[in-house]
Structure formats: structure tokens, C-alpha cells
Amino acid sequence: MNKTESKKSAQWLAFWSIPLAIVVLGLKMGAWWVTGSVALLSDGLESIVNVVAAVVAFMVIGYAAKPADAGHPFGHYKAEYFSAVIEGVLIVVAALLIVWEAIPAMLSPRLPDAPALGLGINLLAGVINAVWAWVLISSGRRLRSPALEADGHHILSDVVTSVGVLFGLVLAIATGYAVLDPLLAIIVACNILYQGWKVIARSVDGLMDRAVPADEEEAIKQAIAANAAGSLGVHDLKTRQAGPVIFVDFHMVVPSAMPVREAHDICDCLEDAIRVVHPGARIAIHVEPEGEKAHGIRVKVVEGLNS
């Protein structure tokens, strides 16, 4: 899949998250309306946040897909991380809303009305969310879209909420202890807070130009080592990831008498090899003449790379 197709796929998935979130919200609020359960109300409140998050993700993914311009020569890819941060914050807000509703209910608990109908409606909403969360997370990883992946994790936290709520309601009805309804809502809220923190942490890490994972960096090193014939060595390899794009930067040492054309051909070969491993990678190679010291590092290609 080329870059254009990846962008279209991400935008398509982000768009369809909006109507699906609205449908799920309607189902969950309907389940609360027929039962009066505070746990189901809490679940519905989280779905309101899901609708807002889906709209934000769609807008940001569209902005991130814009081509580079004079003001943003490296592209707009990092915009997706801002969306993911917002998603994480909204997850935390949803958890706090659940606690806000559950604490008063603990003081005056009551068993829900029409529990079977309410549980059935909420179960349907949970199944829809579970399927869509899997689609978004797997697609987000494949397309390297932090916004899609964050949206998927957000919906997955909603699924966890629904499972906890259903379990709590069944237990409350079976035992007659109405306090289990709001108590389970609070326990689920704690898990949602943890999920929100993980989403925020991953997104901030991306904004801080974290290097690519070790296995991906090793693949880049192997591609360089296998295709750097004619050079004397490479060093100072640096990588970073901005949304779906990988940035690779390193220094290459060549004989001081080598013509510019030959050095350029080696660079072309290296760029092609790296893009086989990471299609669409942005690569910068600094060519150095033999004998020049750069950070005191000089490593031959056959010996590996030292970053």
C-alpha cells in the first residue's frame, strides 16, 4: 500500500468511527433509560466522550495528511500525536464522570428496572465497540497512525467498561446487593484512568522524537550494512518516527578522492535499501571524506554500525 492509499484508508476509518460512535451512544443511553442503572449511565457518559474523540481524530488525521509546505517542510504528521493526547485526556475525563455518578449512587443504591432488556441492549453496543476497536488498533499499527490506534484503545476501554458494568449488574441482580452496581462502576473507572494514562504517555513519547523500536532500527542497520559497498564506514545513526513516517539520519565515510557522482550513487543505493524495509522513509545521509573526525567515531560497515 502506497502513502496515498494509506492516508485514504486512515481517513476512511476515522470518518466511519463517528456514525458508529453515535449509534453506540444511542444504544447505551437507551439501556440506561429502560433500567435507571447508574453503571449503565456511566457507560453512556463515556460514549459521549467517544463521539467527541472520533470527530477530533477525523479532523486531525485529515490535517496530518496535508503535504509539506513552506511553513512545515517536514510535513504535518505530528498532528496525529496531538489527537492521541486529546484522546487520552478524554478517557481520563470519562473515568472521572463515572466516579462522579457512582459515588452518590453508593449512598442510595437500588436495583435496576427491566434488567434483561437493558443488559441485552448494552451487550449489543459492547460487541459493536469490540469489533471496531480491533479494526482501529490493527489498522492504526499497520498504517502507523497514532490517532487511529489511540481511538481504538479509547473504544477498547469502553468495551472494558461495558464488560465490567454487565458483570456488576448481573451480580447485583443475582445477590440482591444493589450497591454492587455503583461499586463496579468505580472499579471500571480506575481501569479506564490507567488506559488513558498509557495513551497519553505513548503520544507524548512520539512528540519527543523517540527512536524507532529496536527491531526496526536493527533492520535499518542490516539494510545499510548490506548495501554500502564502496564506502569506508557509517556512524552516528539516528532515527525518529512522526506518525506514519520514519526519519533516518547517518554519516557515511568515503575515500577522500572519490568523485561526488560515485558517493551519490552509493547514497541512492542505501536509500533504496532502507525504503524496502520502511517504505516512505525520509533519509538524510551526510557524506564525509576519509580522515575527517566526527565525534571521534569511525566504524567499518563490515563491523556493524555504532549509533
Rank of each mutant, 00 (worst) to 15 (best):
residue 255 P to E: 11
residue 278 H to N: 14
residue 277 V to N: 11
residue 307 S to N: 07
residue 297 I to C: 01
residue 165 V to P: 03
residue 245 V to S: 00
residue 275 R to C: 14
residue 81 Y to T: 00
residue 213 P to Y: 04
residue 159 V to P: 03
residue 1 M to H: 14
residue 173 I to E: 14
residue 300 K to C: 05
residue 29 M to P: 01
residue 199 V to L: 06
residue 90 L to H: 00
residue 158 D to K: 00
residue 135 V to M: 13
residue 193 L to E: 02
residue 220 I to H: 06
residue 107 L to H: 13
residue 274 I to Y: 07
residue 258 M to S: 10
residue 165 V to L: 08
residue 305 L to R: 04
residue 130 A to T: 08
residue 121 I to P: 01
residue 14 A to H: 07
residue 82 F to V: 04
residue 56 V to N: 06
residue 242 A to Y: 00
residue 122 N to W: 08
residue 80 E to V: 02
residue 235 H to R: 04
residue 180 L to A: 08
residue 61 I to Y: 09
residue 181 D to M: 11
residue 103 I to Q: 12
residue 223 A to F: 08
residue 71 G to T: 02
residue 197 W to C: 00
residue 27 L to P: 13
residue 275 R to Q: 15
residue 157 S to L: 04
residue 108 S to C: 12
residue 32 W to T: 00
residue 24 V to G: 05
residue 69 D to R: 02
residue 221 K to H: 09
residue 68 A to L: 03
residue 118 G to M: 11
residue 215 D to M: 12
residue 126 G to S: 12
residue 183 L to I: 15
residue 228 A to G: 08
residue 216 E to W: 11
residue 181 D to N: 10
residue 21 A to V: 06
residue 40 L to Y: 08
residue 92 V to A: 10
residue 116 A to L: 15
residue 7 K to Q: 15
residue 47 S to R: 06
residue 130 A to I: 05
residue 199 V to S: 02
residue 144 R to Q: 11
residue 196 G to I: 03
residue 134 W to V: 04
residue 303 E to Y: 08
residue 105 A to T: 09
residue 86 I to A: 12
residue 154 H to V: 03
residue 270 L to V: 05
residue 126 G to Y: 12
residue 94 A to C: 07
residue 218 E to D: 14
residue 137 I to V: 14
residue 231 S to H: 03
residue 299 V to E: 12
residue 23 V to D: 06
residue 305 L to W: 04
residue 194 Y to W: 14
residue 257 A to R: 12
residue 2 N to M: 12
residue 268 D to T: 09
residue 102 A to T: 12
residue 243 G to C: 07
residue 163 V to S: 10
residue 181 D to A: 10
residue 199 V to Y: 02
residue 27 L to W: 10
residue 200 I to K: 00
residue 134 W to R: 13
residue 53 A to E: 05
residue 201 A to R: 14
residue 128 I to D: 02
residue 9 S to R: 15
residue 283 I to F: 03
residue 154 H to F: 09
residue 44 G to W: 05
residue 95 A to L: 02
residue 302 V to D: 15
residue 36 G to T: 02
residue 58 F to S: 12
residue 17 S to L: 09
residue 275 R to S: 08
residue 199 V to R: 03
residue 181 D to Q: 11
residue 247 F to A: 03
residue 142 R to G: 01
residue 147 A to F: 01
residue 274 I to W: 06
residue 21 A to G: 07
residue 3 K to F: 10
residue 266 I to M: 07
residue 129 N to G: 06
residue 31 A to H: 03
residue 290 E to R: 11
residue 40 L to R: 10
residue 8 K to I: 14
residue 164 G to Q: 12
residue 167 F to E: 04
residue 41 L to C: 08
residue 11 Q to F: 12
residue 50 N to D: 14
residue 66 K to S: 04
residue 140 G to L: 10
residue 139 S to N: 13
residue 7 K to P: 01
residue 200 I to V: 15
residue 263 A to W: 10
residue 90 L to S: 07
residue 186 I to V: 14
residue 125 A to F: 08
residue 249 D to H: 09
